[in-house]
Computed example of a mutant assay.
Amino acid sequence: MKVAIAGAGAVGRSIARELLTNAHEVTLFERKADHIDPDSVPGASWILADACELSRLEEAQLQTFDVMIAATGDDKANLVVSLLAKTEFAVNRVVARVNDPRNEWLFGEDWGVDVAVSTPRLLASLVEEAVSVGDLVRLMTFRQGQANLVELTLPSNTPLAGKPVRRLELPHDVALVTILRGGRVIVPQSDDPIEGDDELIFIAPEEAEGALYEAMKIAR
């Protein structure tokens, strides 16, 4: 994929390195000349420009990119970048960093954001995930589809133990995407059995979360 990243601070550079490791084409937009450091992200392209300026995005031909990541430390800038990417250049996927959780409500479809990533919320979710057995923990919200990435850790004595994935009676529009078992990451196949202490990762609309509890035989 061809990915643009607005903001080449520590967060933007870290994202760029990860994407380059996975063989994506990455371009970093940075408005401060003293932050331009090609040696810090070998393989990335750099543009000295404010990604909030429409003319600079036009010069970079942003319409040819598959993804825009608004990763600056300023929520206002991230919203402007997201809106321009989606409305002016029809970028297929827009991911935005939320610095202040109080602003999270703004990072939605109206501002062109497909996925909003709030570091404080994500860290809190991971803390909950680490200590919660039998609770449904929301890890991330996908704004465009109004669906959530949710995690559920089964108790060791779950009545689902030994049941194959194909026999799980999941609610409509809910998908099991990953099973975490010990040190393994399992892409579930229809015949894979469920085991106690499994961590199950689902994509589910918010309105289906209650039914998901029931389907997994775990009381609220």
Results as ranks from 00 to 15, higher is better:
Leu168Lys: 04
Pro38Leu: 06
Pro38Gly: 08
Glu206Ala: 12
Ala130His: 13
Pro193Met: 02
Leu200Glu: 06
Ala8Ile: 07
Ile186Glu: 02
Ser55Gly: 09
Thr119Phe: 05
Glu206His: 09
Pro38Ser: 11
Ser55Lys: 12
Val133Trp: 10
Gln61Ile: 10
Trp111Arg: 00
Ile15Met: 12
Glu58Ala: 13
Pro171Arg: 10
Arg181Ile: 04
Ala10Val: 14
Asp66Trp: 07
Arg167Val: 08
Asp75His: 06
His35Val: 08
Glu207Leu: 12
Val67Met: 12
Ser132Met: 13
Ala161Pro: 01
Gln144Ile: 05
Ile69Glu: 11
Gly7Glu: 04
Asp173Ile: 01
Gly73Arg: 10
Ala16Ile: 07
Val94Phe: 01
Ala208Cys: 11
Asn78Cys: 05
Leu126Pro: 07
Arg138Tyr: 04
Val150Met: 01
Pro193Leu: 03
Ser125Ala: 15
Gln63Thr: 07
Glu169Ser: 15
Val127Phe: 07
Glu88Asn: 01
Lys163Asn: 10
Ala44Asp: 12
Val131Leu: 15
Gly73His: 04
Ser118Leu: 00
Gly9Lys: 07
Pro120His: 03
Ser40Lys: 15
Val165Glu: 10
Asp100Met: 08
Val187Met: 10
His35Phe: 12
Ala208Gln: 15
Glu109Phe: 06
Pro155His: 08
Glu59Leu: 13
Val165His: 07
Asp197Lys: 09
Ala130Arg: 13
Arg184Ser: 10
Glu195Gly: 00
Arg56Cys: 11
Ala4Cys: 14
Arg97Asp: 05
Glu53Cys: 04
Val185Phe: 01
Lys163Cys: 10
Leu136Phe: 03
Ala204Pro: 07
Thr87Cys: 02
Val98Asn: 01
